[in-house]
Design a protein around this nucleic acid. Structure first.
Length: 334
DNA sequence: GGTCCACAGGAAAGATAGGGTC
DNA sequence: GACCCTATCTTTCCTGTGGACC
């Protein structure tokens, strides 16, 4: 049934972007001056997860690079690369420079100079999940480099600017803004139809089943793709010719679990213990959770560190919190 | 309204690891 | 090998906030 598994992967960049024509045109226009030696605009893309922000940005950069191979581009995920050092390292890697060679003898203030030295023309970079950056100075560094154009991707615009250093925020206020809204059911059906055309055998899933997946995904293309991918794998392993509604309903919990597992893999041992405790004991206050954790492990981290862990786990969407202050409880998302 | 307590999170300092330099 | 420098992680201390209770 599965003819090209890559197509069903959320990281796959399609040949055409569906239902984002306006956003695509605006982003292309903002970057177009790169091609003529002009002054491109920095851009902020924001909107809920699964609305195609990353896909749109990467697609646009691929097109730009295709039109002019002299333009360097780089994608950096700030969730994994949250410090000034890590972002700079990725940006230098995009220019063919390995920062790890001099890692322990390079002052942070030297990073922008190293990037400037390595530049040989326009450099367009995507900073995905930029609201996860812990050291926003890197944005200040990049803003000062005239050859660098940045595309910032975040879930909420207000949170992005709220967390930024004042001087960085004021410099980015002039950047172009593109808001990406959730897909409608019809739009998501068409997006999934295209993936089915490219990646699955003909007639392996009908429009009614795709509509059911889109309904369940509630405008989130990432969830929709995960359900489609899991359903195709399930049907294939069971020797079925088509993905039926009962298959879809059966695998939805597995598809959601698959998405959660990807995030759990990013946790350290202490964080996994906290997750398991929460799964075992149900909703718990931070204080109770810390008590349980201290009983469960031989060499526990301090309460402050555990709070940092819980905060990070919430950002990973592995756990969620309800209530505030004393009424606050952590729980596993349903 | 005042007090207590739990919680969140910032700041500073300490510990550790590891590469560069002499 | 000793020392220096840097990144990263952790801990301690502290302040601010908000709910519960009197």
């Amino acid at each position: 049934m599965i003819e090209d598994a890559r197509v069903l992967n959320e990281k796959f960049i399609p040949q055409e972007i569906e239902h984002r024509n306006d956003e695509l045109n605006r982003l292309s226009r903002a970057l177009a001056p790169c091609l003529s030696g002009g002054d491109p605009e920095n851009t902020v893309l924001y909107g809920p997860s699964g609305t195609g922000k990353t896909c749109l940005a990467r697609y646009t950069l691929d097109q730009l690079h295709e039109q002019s191979p002299d333009i360097d581009t780089q994608y950096v995920n700030c969730w994994q690369n949250y410090s000034r050092y890590r972002v700079s390292k990725e940006l230098l890697a995009g220019l063919g420079v390995d920062l790890t060679v001099n890692r322990h003898s390079t002052a942070k203030d030297e990073y922008p100079h190293l990037i400037e030295e390595a530049l040989d023309g326009p450099y367009v970079v995507i900073l995905d999940e930029v609201d996860q950056l812990q050291e926003s100075e890197v944005l200040y560094d990049l803003h000062r480099l005239s050859q660098v154009t940045i595309i910032l991707i975040a879930n909420r615009e207000t949170e992005l600017f709220y967390n930024l250093d004042e001087r960085v925020a004021s410099r980015l206020k002039g950047a172009a803004r593109l808001e990406m809204n959730k897909y409608t059911v019809d739009e998501l059906v068409e997006i999934l139809q295209a993936r089915v055309r490219w990646g699955l055998a003909p007639d392996s899933i009908g429009p009614e089943q795709l509509r059911l997946i889109s309904d369940i995904a509630a405008g989130d293309a990432r969830v929709g793709l995960s359900i489609l991918r899991t359903a195709a794998k399930y049907a294939e392993s069971d020797g079925l010719d088509t993905i039926t509604e009962s298959v879809i309903e059966q695998i939805v919990p597995d598809a959601r679990e698959e998405l959660r597992k990807k995030n759990i893999e990013k946790l350290n041992g202490h964080q996994v213990t906290l997750f398991e405790l929460l799964k075992e004991h149900g909703p718990a206050s931070p204080g109770d959770l810390i008590d349980l954790y201290e009983e469960a492990v031989d060499d526990p981290m301090s309460g402050r560190t555990v709070r940092n862990y819980l905060s990070k786990m919430e950002q990973y969407r592995v756990i969620e919190s309800v209530g505030r202050s004393r009424a606050k409880r952590y729980q596993i998302p349903t």
